[in-house]
Amino acid sequence: MRLRQKPRAALAYLALIVPSALILVGFLWLFITSFSIRTEGLRSLGWTLSNWSFLWKSPFGPQYPSIWWVTLNTLVMSLIMTLIVVVVSSMTAYALSRMKFTGRKSFLSLTLILHAFPSVTLLIPIYFVLIWVSKIPVIGRGVPLLGGLGYNTIGGVALVMVAFQLPFGIWVMKGFFDNISWDMERSALIDGASRFRVWWEIMMPNIKPGIAALSIFSFITGWNAYLIPLTFTAGRAGKSAVLSLYLQNFISESVMTEWNAVAAVGLFQLIPVVIFFLFTQQMLLNIYGGGKKGGV
């Protein structure tokens, strides 16, 4: 028995280690390349720090915002988006997990099916919607900080990204609510607390791991977002650019692309997320609400 099992285990380990090594080598190359003039295989053909010079001086001239400004933009956008995703998904998931109402089942299957819609092809219709929203007074254009919720505003971009993140968020949060025993909630309700208060004061503190996990996922999605900010921020790419758009400035078919600088900027974009992940990995691992059934 034991003897027969060994090759199987060895094979499994091999199947894990070989592809893992491939990733490791790839990222090693990325790292080496960002400090090199050119590379051949994993060998640097000359070391340099110049690829990282974007950190202290804009490589594109004074007309361009500095990398730190862009980073701040990206941070603000990702945080706004994360906040909305968490609040909205947990509200929805709470209702789906704890309340009976007409259309509950269809709503659940719908959120899953929504995922079947390729975001890219909805871009033009979403543009029409954003234009309509723009025309609503105050909300459309006049919100401070966000600029509004319409076309060409940070708020609008964040909102669209929220929409694409919601199906996943709702399902994850529902799994967590499903696994909380309802005794606690019931006694609060009996004491006369409103459903809203119960959700906010009793349920939310109990699903902290779920909130953390979803926050991390949403934040990473926002941090790396490219297509949506690109499409819905006309001509503001220079000023309210996010990191992915900034990176695009280095790449071009028609003129020399500084691939080594691209590697450096890419790593710069990656590092905060990796650090973030190292601190939160335990929470991320809790994304599954547990239990045998009804999870996620």
Binding site: Q63, L230, T231, A234, G235, R236, A237, G238, K239, A241, L245, Q248, N249, F250, I251, S252
Partner: peptide, 14 residues
């Protein structure tokens, strides 16, 4: 001045 280096397709649709 708005100047960046996006691809032609998005530049046009923008």
């Amino acid at each position: 001045l708005i100047q960046d280096n996006m691809e032609w397709g998005p530049f046009l649709s923008e």
